[in-house]
Simulated assay, not measured.
Amino acid sequence: MPTRLPPLKALRAFDAAARHMSFARAAEEVGVTPAALSFQIKTLEEHLGQPLFRRLNRAVELTEAGRVLAPGTAEGFRSLQAAWRDAGRVGNNHTLTVTAGPAFTARWMAPRFYEFARAHPEIELRFSASLRPTDFERDAIDVAIRLRRGPDDQTYSVPLAFEWVTPVMLPEMAELYPTPESLTKAPLLVDDALDFVDPPCDWAAWFRAVGISHRPEGATHFSQSDHAVDATLAGAGVTLGRRSMVIKELHEGRLVAPYGIALKPPTHFRFICPKGNETRPAIAAFRDWILSEIDKTSAVSDTLTIIPSEDVPRDLPST
């Protein structure tokens, strides 16, 4: 049984052929002719001492030995590619790729990132607005900002700030609806982005938290939180604003939260990166900056009575 590894080029040819089940398509992927790829695989088979493919009339299929070899070869090349990419990043402190949800990127990141750029002109920031599950290796991502219930043992994870939701509106609209009871007559906007949260943090839950049984009907719904905020800023109505989406507008007085009651879902925004990478200068600088930016508006939260959503009754007693 051979113990010495065969040439890497031959293993690469086998990996491509095993994935495509076609020598022609594999040859195109690795940049050689089909004849050259066939020769590399034949060399590999001679090294192993048994065939890896059955050559059929118009196709190929793996032998038992090929089926055993294929998963390990594929994983080996994935690991090699990841290690090569990570090694290249070690000395690269000039580029930082950050992923966050589209609404968070638009509403929180975009208005602030110039402050980071001004403090760190040597770092080139790249944003990837996405909610897809983060794969740092596959997507070449350095940092992810994600809304999660708790830490992930597989990554370095730092809580940034817990979310809360509270009714927000233009100051002049607050004069029209001075009490929670009067809010039942207001044009309410619905942000559906937190629909996945359990217990719910929707309008019905907020009204129950202040002792009112009211479920808005005929309200306007938005799938993106930033769109709901844009509509609120345009005077279209009152939205149950998420902290991350409205904190800047509340801090600057463009929106107000007149009732002082907020609900807190069981989630935190977290700063996430692969373990060990948190000490990279660019990542550490970005983490420290984002924490300092959050602290600038912390006084807004101090003006609210924040009720965990778990403490909101599911139903109010009948009167």
Rank of each mutant, 00 (worst) to 15 (best):
M1C: 13
P2F: 09
P2A: 08
T3F: 12
T3C: 09
P6N: 11
P7W: 14
P7E: 13
K9I: 15
L11N: 10
A13F: 11
D15C: 11
R19Y: 05
H20S: 15
F23R: 14
R25M: 14
A27G: 13
E29Y: 05
G31W: 09
V32H: 13
T33L: 08
F39Y: 14
Q40T: 05
K42C: 14
T43H: 09
E45N: 14
E45L: 12
L48D: 01
L52H: 08
R58C: 00
V60W: 13
E61V: 12
A65H: 03
G66D: 10
A70Q: 12
G72S: 04
G72L: 07
A74N: 15
S79D: 12
L80D: 08
L80E: 10
W84T: 01
W84D: 00
A87L: 10
A87W: 12
G88C: 08
R89H: 09
G91S: 03
H94F: 02
T95P: 02
L96Q: 04
L96F: 03
T97P: 05
T99L: 04
G101M: 12
G101E: 09
A103L: 05
A110Q: 04
A110C: 02
A110D: 02
P111H: 00
F113P: 09
Y114G: 05
Y114H: 09
A117Y: 05
A117M: 06
R118M: 02
H120G: 03
E122T: 07
E124N: 09
E124H: 10
S128E: 07
R132K: 14
P133I: 15
T134Q: 06
T134M: 09
D135T: 04
F136G: 06
F136H: 06
D139F: 14
A140R: 03
A140V: 02
R146P: 12
R149V: 00
R149A: 07
R149C: 03
Q154V: 07
A161T: 06
E163G: 00
M169A: 00
M169I: 00
P171S: 12
P171E: 14
A174E: 01
Y177F: 10
E181N: 11
S182I: 10
S182H: 12
T184F: 10
T184E: 11
K185N: 07
L189P: 13
V190M: 00
D191C: 12
L194E: 10
D195L: 09
D195K: 12
D198E: 03
A209Y: 15
A209Q: 15
V210N: 14
V210Y: 14
G211M: 04
S213W: 02
S213D: 05
H214E: 07
G218L: 08
A219C: 01
S223I: 07
D226Y: 00
H227Y: 03
A234L: 11
G237S: 00
R242K: 06
S244I: 03
V246I: 03
L255P: 08
A257N: 08
P258N: 15
Y259D: 03
K264M: 15
P266M: 04
H268G: 14
F269L: 03
R270Q: 13
F271Q: 08
I272A: 05
G276L: 05
N277G: 13
E278F: 05
R280S: 13
A282E: 02
A282T: 02
I290F: 08
S292L: 06
E293D: 11
V300T: 07
S301Q: 06
S301I: 06
S301K: 07
T303G: 12
T305G: 10
P308T: 10
S309E: 07
E310L: 11
D311V: 11
P313L: 06
P317Y: 01
P317T: 03
S318D: 09
